Amino acid sequence: MGLSALQGSFQPPPVPVRPQFLKHEVDKKELELKEEIGRGAFGVVYLATRHKNLNGFPTEETVVVKTVHAYAGAQERATFVREIETTLDLGKHQNLLGLVGCCTTSHPPYMVTEYMPYGDLKEFLLKCRKRLKDSTYDLELLNKYQIARQIANGMIFISQAGYVHGDLAARNVLVGEDLVVKIADFGLATDVYERGYQRQDAEQKIPVRWMAPERLLREGRYTSKSDVWSFGVVVYEIATLGNVPYPGLDRQLMEELRGGYREPRPEDCPQEMYDLMLKCWQWEEDDRPEFQQLYDQLDDLMADCSEVSYLEPFGDPDEATAVEAPEGV
């Protein structure tokens, strides 16, 4: 699809130039958009090739380009720009999706990221239910713990940076080679460093079944412990290979949660894994564990279910720099 089709007839003003964006700007002429690989309420995602000259030699790199709909309103464009800004502010981490660059000086704005060949975790888990030739889709319990542990690792980094992700779900985690997973989609992420919490924008759309009770209540107050609740739902998605949580509950969900109802233990889910979910789903925020505690527990569960050793974390564990084990180890 060409740029004209992306832009359409509506041409809002470009994003105001921000100094922090300039050194990451990519020339749109370098980007060749291929097929559409994703579409949401606010934007479209394309597989793309970036053409560059490196020391006089032409090179090609497979990347992903995310952009807003041509008819996106001011709020959607602002959310998109905030996602770019947050990604830059957070910096690099092995379990966060890497930013290649951005295009913000013309409309539509682009965010260019690394390509993760297995797509989002939600679709990946659904494919694991089928008999596919690629052995990557043959998930054992150890692999499930490995995936959850990497997500916890990334969330340690995000929370220590003073951010709340705000939309943690399997659909917002991407899967690469050797079952490396990376957290993405920081559109709802918010810096809560100064106050320690954030209040929900009344106009902000949120995925109810993944949200902590405090985010569903009218005041919409949330912290890093709200992300912990969502992490418990992600572990549920991993355990069930992609089940939607709380099916059939919509308007009644809050009252059910307030009354103590939680998703029952999934079939074939070890009690230890379910206990971890329940810790994340404590009604009171202070009763939920920190991401470092969840990481450590998953580390122990990996060790317990593995008959062979895996690579141990190196350095200070508080820095969340654990080395992931190769697939199947």
Score class of each variant (00 low, 15 high):
Asp134Val: 02
His69Gly: 12
Cys103Val: 11
Lys127Val: 10
Lys122Tyr: 08
Ile183Ser: 00
Glu140Gln: 05
Gln75Asp: 09
Leu96Ile: 05
Val100Trp: 14
Glu85Trp: 08
Val173Leu: 01
Ala148Thr: 11
Leu125Arg: 13
Leu132Asp: 05
Met116Arg: 04
Phe124Trp: 11
Val68Gly: 00
Leu121Ala: 06
Pro117His: 10
Asn95Gly: 02
Gly91Ile: 09
Ser106Cys: 04
Cys103His: 04
Gly73Gln: 11
Tyr71Asn: 12
Lys122Ile: 12
Lys182Gly: 05
Ala161Glu: 12
Gly187Asn: 04
Leu97Arg: 10
Ala148Trp: 11
Ala170Asn: 03
Val192Asp: 02
Lys182Asn: 14
Pro108Asn: 08
Gly119Ala: 05
Leu174Ser: 02
Gly166Lys: 03
Leu174Lys: 10
Lys66Val: 06
Ala74Asp: 10
Gly73Met: 15
Gly162Glu: 13
Thr113Gln: 03
Thr86Met: 01
Ile158Val: 11
His107Phe: 08
Phe57His: 11
Thr59Tyr: 13
Ser106Ile: 06
Asp89Leu: 14
Asp120Phe: 13
Ser159Met: 05
Leu141His: 10
Phe57Trp: 15
Pro108Lys: 07
Val175Ala: 11
Gly187Gln: 07
Leu121Tyr: 14
Pro108Leu: 02
Phe157Cys: 00
Asp138Gly: 07
Thr67Pro: 00
Ala169Phe: 06
Gly73Leu: 07
Arg129Val: 09
Tyr193Trp: 15
Ser135Trp: 08
Phe124Gln: 12
Asp178Val: 05
Val81Ser: 04
Val112Asp: 01
Val180Thr: 05
Glu140Ile: 06
Met116Ala: 06
Thr136Val: 15
Cys102Met: 09
Thr59Ala: 13
Val180Leu: 15
Val100Lys: 12
Val68Ile: 13
Val181Tyr: 10
Ile158Leu: 00
Arg82Leu: 09
Thr59Ile: 04
Gly119His: 05
Glu61Ser: 14
Thr86Ile: 01
Ile147Val: 10
Phe80Ser: 00
Thr113Met: 08
Pro109His: 09
Leu90Met: 02
Val100Ala: 04
Ala169Ser: 12
Phe57Asn: 13
Arg195Gly: 01
Ile151Met: 15
Thr59Ser: 15
Ala169Leu: 05
Val68Arg: 05
Asp178Trp: 14
Gly73Phe: 12
Asp134Asn: 06
Asp185Ile: 05
Glu140Pro: 01
Leu132Phe: 15
Leu188Asn: 04
Leu179Asn: 11
Leu88His: 08
Gln94Asn: 07
Pro108Val: 08
Gly73Val: 09
Ala152Tyr: 08
Phe157Asn: 01
Asp120Val: 15
Phe80Asp: 01
Glu83Thr: 02
Arg82Ile: 13
Val68Glu: 01
His93Ala: 06
Gly119Asp: 03
Leu168Ile: 01
Arg171Glu: 06
Tyr163Gln: 04
Asn143Arg: 09
Ala184Tyr: 13
Tyr163Cys: 02
Tyr137Val: 09
Gln160Asp: 14
Thr86Glu: 01
Tyr145Ser: 00
Arg149Gln: 10
Phe57Glu: 13
Leu90Thr: 07
Val64Gln: 08
Ala170Ile: 09
Ala161Ile: 09
Phe80Ile: 00
Glu83Lys: 03
Lys66Ile: 07
Glu76Asp: 12
His165Trp: 07
Ile183Asp: 00
Ala161Cys: 12
